[in-house]
Nucleic acid binder design. Structure first.
Lengths: 240, 240
DNA sequence: CCCTAATCCCGTACGACGTACGAGAATAGT
DNA sequence: ACTATTCTCGTACGTCGTACGGGATTAGGG
């Protein structure tokens, strides 16, 4: 299934990984599938967090022996890349383009946010791993580039904009998730508040003290995201 | 040194971690120090990457037994937070503020970028870990809030801007580092190029094909960073 | 001055992890 | 039926984070 060529230092040849779907003409028939294994890993990460994704647990979920997984992915890092591309499939089909590139870009970001909220391990996974452009990721990237067609940006700049919108969304969703986790644990939240109050009272952080003394804004995460996204996208200029 | 209170689920009480520097009045004298251990961990990460930072290797660097580290940090996650705050000390003293908040914000981002290039594990560490605001991080945050004083932003919005500037910088530096790593390995770079060429040739990704067919811009990473940062900061509006 | 309580040092050990190895089972072409 | 190929997976190795607890070192109180 995966030719073990080694490939040198720290990575798998993307052609070997994403192309080459032809079944070999001889040999035992595979008892599992890459998609099933990936889906099991995703389900595990959704339910118990990314740290629960171990080769042993994924294997037991799909009913395979541990070492059988290595017929479908050469190592765990690759399995994580497969997971990212797998959930990116949920972004298809995207909303049709309107021709208003700012609105289209915002729709793209909102779709990404919804995806990341559904799979809370995704923001971290996106940041850590070297981008491995699987078919689903490529399809969405193609869509984003099409959305930017009305702009005067050149190819490289379009790619940068997409990368930054994704990073922006990942950052805000990660904060949103962390905030929710904190709220869910009153003990930790109280400890954090006590610490910040102590810092604010030490006299060396007047700006922070003032920022914290203001009444918290009663905004939903959705509204905060929408506001910051609007600000960011509206600030983008189509020139150069 | 660190009171083992347990503190429930998944985190250490920040007050226990960052405050409480008073030496106990009885008992054996510490043979090492938190600062020395943290510095050794940072040196290890700088030289061999974040994965080289294991309790065993850090201990051997400082000449301690492995378990001695646990007198100075309750677990490895905490040691990583100490590392982040430790290198953040290199941001002090920051450039004095000019009163032009856009220029000051850009200077802040450039300082962060320089720090991240010096410590390539930092972008990833910043994204993964829950923010643990140690003294050095707090000092820099205070500086950033002061830079934003001329704006009309409220406290929460200032914090958001700082978070997004940091995330923006981390993303670009991470890409920059990945790009450098790719360039350093011609074999991997060629494999990547071959894969993208195959995708562009499949006819299903016309926008991507066009974006890749354009001649690569001969810009240094510095210039790219400065250009995108300018665009982002200039797009920020001081109103709400 | 010794006794006691506090604190730190760290050798040993445990369970979990990623995965190399290779023997056995299943398949397809000859 | 034989053989080459491919997949399955039990066993095993090295490494990781860290719980446990006994010994060493210190300061205060009698």
């Amino acid at each position: 299934m995966v030719r073990g060529d080694g490939s040198g230092a720290g990575g798998v040849d993307p052609q070997q990984l994403w192309l080459n779907s032809d079944r070999p003409r001889k040999g035992r028939k595979p008892a599992f599938s890459r998609a099933a294994i990936t889906a099991a890993a995703v389900a595990l990460a959704d339910a118990e967090g990314i740290d629960a994704v171990t080769m042993r647990r994924v294997a037991s979920q799909v009913g395979a022996g541990v070492m059988s997984l290595y017929s479908y992915a050469p190592d765990k890092e690759t399995l994580l890349q497969l997971m990212v591309d797998h959930v990116s499939g949920e972004l298809s089909p995207p909303d049709p383009l309107t021709g208003d590139w700012r609105a289209d870009l915002k729709a793209i970001a909102h779709a990404q946010r919804a995806l990341m909220l559904r799979h809370p391990w995704l923001p971290t996974a996106l940041f850590n791993r070297r981008w491995s452009l699987g078919p689903n990721t490529l399809a969405f990237l193609e869509h984003a580039l099409a959305a930017l067609r009305p702009t005067a940006l050149d190819g490289g700049a379009k790619l940068e904009v997409f990368s930054l919108i994704t990073a922006f969304t990942a950052r805000l969703v990660a904060d949103e998730i962390a905030q929710a986790a904190l709220s869910a644990s009153p003990e930790r939240a109280a400890a954090e508040a006590r610490y910040l109050a102590a810092v604010a009272a030490d006299g060396h952080h007047p700006e922070l003290a003032e920022a914290l003394s203001a009444p918290p804004r009663p905004l939903t995460p959705d509204a905060t995201f929408a506001r910051l996204l609007d600000r960011m996208v509206d600030g983008l200029d189509a020139g150069s």
